Simulated scan of single mutants.
Amino acid sequence: MTTIIIADDHPVVRCGIRTLLEDDRNVVVGEAADLPQTAELVERHRPTLLLLDLSFAGTSSLDLVPRIRALSPRTRILILTMHDDPELARDSLAAGAHGFLRKEAVAEELVAAVDALAAGRRYLDPALGAALLDRDPGLDTTLSKREREVLALIADGLTNRQIADELRVSIRTIEAQRASIKLKLGVSRRTELVTCARQLRLTA
C-alpha cells in the first residue's frame, strides 16, 4: 500500500487529488494546508509519498524539502506547481525532490508520476524535460531497466509512438522516460542518444 500526504493551500486541489488517487493501492493518510503542518504530518505518518505544492501563499516550499528528507528518509517527494519554468524543475530536483509535475497535467500523468515515485524512480513533467538538457551533478545518472529499454529502441530508430506500442504504455510515459534519459545522460540530440546506447552496448 502506498501512503500519501497531500500538501497544498487550496482545499479544492487537495480534494481533487485525493479523489483521483485513492484506490486499493493508494491511501491518503493526511492533508496539509501549510508548511509547518506538512512537516508535522510527515514526521507522524512517514508516508511513501509527499505531494508538495511548490508555493504556499507566495512562499517557496523548496526550503522544506531537505527537512522532509531528514524527518522521513524513505518518503519520496513530488513537487506540484502551476508554473512551467524548467529552472524551477531543476531547482526542485536539486533540492532533493524526486519528481516535478505541473498541475495542468492530465490525470494520467499524475497517476504515472505517483506510480513512478512509489516504485523508486523519478518523474519529470514531459513538457519540461526536454528543456533540461544539461546534466545536474546532484542527479542520479543511473538509467532504470525500462529507461535502458527505451534508449535501445530509440537507437533502433523507433518513434515515441512506436516505442509506446512496443512496450504497451502511453506515449506520455515514453515522453517522460525519454526526457529523463536526456537529463541523466546530459544529451539533447537523438544522435547523442544513439551514441550513448552504443557505449552502453544497448545496440550495435
Rank of each mutant, 00 (worst) to 15 (best):
T2H: 06
T2R: 11
A7V: 05
D8E: 08
D8A: 01
D9R: 02
P11M: 02
I17R: 10
R18D: 10
L20P: 11
E22C: 10
D23K: 10
D24A: 14
D24I: 05
V28S: 08
V28N: 07
G30Q: 11
A33P: 02
D34Y: 12
P36V: 04
Q37I: 08
A39Q: 15
A39M: 15
E40V: 09
L41W: 07
E43D: 13
E43P: 02
H45Y: 14
P47W: 00
L50M: 06
L52W: 03
D53A: 04
L54M: 14
L54I: 03
A57F: 11
T59N: 12
S61D: 07
L62C: 05
D63H: 12
D63Q: 13
R67F: 10
R69I: 12
A70K: 11
R74P: 00
T81M: 05
M82V: 14
D85H: 03
P86F: 00
L88R: 06
L88V: 01
G96L: 04
A97G: 07
L101V: 10
E104Y: 02
A105H: 06
A105V: 12
E108L: 13
E108A: 15
E108D: 15
V111R: 15
A112H: 11
A113S: 09
D115R: 14
A116D: 08
L117C: 11
A118W: 05
A119L: 09
R121V: 06
R121N: 14
R122G: 07
P126C: 00
G129E: 06
A131S: 13
A131I: 00
A131G: 01
L132R: 00
L133T: 13
D134W: 04
D136I: 01
G138R: 10
D140E: 10
T141L: 08
T141F: 06
K145D: 15
R148A: 13
E149D: 14
L153P: 06
I154F: 03
D156N: 12
G157A: 02
T159S: 14
T159K: 08
T159Y: 03
N160W: 00
N160Q: 15
R161E: 11
I163D: 02
E166K: 10
L167E: 04
L167D: 01
L167R: 09
R172T: 13
T173G: 02
T173C: 10
T173D: 12
T173Y: 11
A176P: 09
S180D: 13
K182A: 03
K182H: 02
K184L: 02
V187T: 01
V187C: 02
S188Y: 03
S188D: 10
S188G: 12
T191C: 08
T195F: 05
L200F: 09
L200C: 04
L200M: 11
L202R: 05
L202N: 06
T203L: 03
A204S: 14
